[in-house]
Design a protein around this nucleic acid. Structure first.
Lengths: 142, 142
DNA sequence: AGGCTATTTGGAATAGTTCTAATTATTAGT
DNA sequence: ACTAATAATTAGAACTATTCCAAATAGCCT
């Protein structure tokens, strides 16, 4: 993975929104790209600390929020628990494995998204649709 | 709406799970049936108090959790905020109106649910699927 | 009635997140 | 380069939603 390319993409996106590229934002973003296991803010905080030992949790929240605003990251909420973050920008659903607690991305064909949107009655204008499966995944489904 | 019929259905369901029917559980359940606006626990608490002024918030949480366990109520989580509760048991999606903050139920044909499930690769066994739309609804869509 | 278990209650505790005010870093204009 | 203006970070306090806990109450079964 080329950190340089990510950084460029990141600073471009940030600049587009009138925001600055900072070491904190870069590291947080790269942490998300590195291990795409839908970490919570706390988990990101723990990982980032090894690179930026003085970063604060508030900054992690700020950075994550910024990345979500710039459309570089999606935030995902399963029941009750903490928000999780996901750098996968392609249209995808989430499969929440109740056994392991792990979350898997499931790619969605454009055709399906259309079909899902078509159930909306007149007068409903959806900007986005989120699909969450719950169940169990066997070993083979890594 | 016949409270008696609901109560019967409720006590039957509770009994099936080895639980008792209590005034608190009945009132909480009827509150949900009365106004299907996906209230939070706090909102349910406020509404219930007019009928049972001494009920506690902890009991409201307990009752809601019990109803969810008995499959009489679904809990729904949109981003960050508090959990919301919904007595609609038919398969449906939620449309979250970003303007008003209101949530509308969207019925889902069985055919669509099948189609959605069919995007799951081998090895994924979904027990349930949740669909959340975000956008805006025009006046006509009540 | 008496004992057993389920339920409720209020308050304390916890988890996750946001807010605030002070400090530090970055940029733009001279 | 120097300074002013702005943006971002920081630590900790505050807040919100929820859960936990231990005591009190209620319902059910002999």
């Amino acid at each position: 993975m080329s950190t340089t390319l990510n950084s460029d993409a990141l600073s471009r996106r940030l600049a587009d929104s009138g925001l600055r590229s900072t070491p904190q934002r870069e590291v947080v973003y790269n942490i998300l790209l590195d291990k795409r296991d839908h970490p919570t803010a706390d988990e990101v905080f723990a990982r980032v600390k090894s690179e930026l030992p003085t970063i604060s949790l508030a900054t992690v929240y700020n950075c994550l929020e910024t990345l979500v605003q710039c459309d570089l990251v999606r935030s995902v909420n399963f029941e009750r628990g903490p928000t999780r973050y996901c750098p996968n920008l392609r249209p995808h659903a989430h499969f929440h494995d109740e056994q392991t607690g792990k979350t898997h991305d499931i790619d969605l064909p454009a055709e399906l998204i259309e079909k899902v949107n078509s159930v909306l009655p007149q007068g409903y204008d959806a900007k986005s649709v989120e699909i969450i499966f719950r169940g169990k995944a066997t070993e083979s489904a890594h």
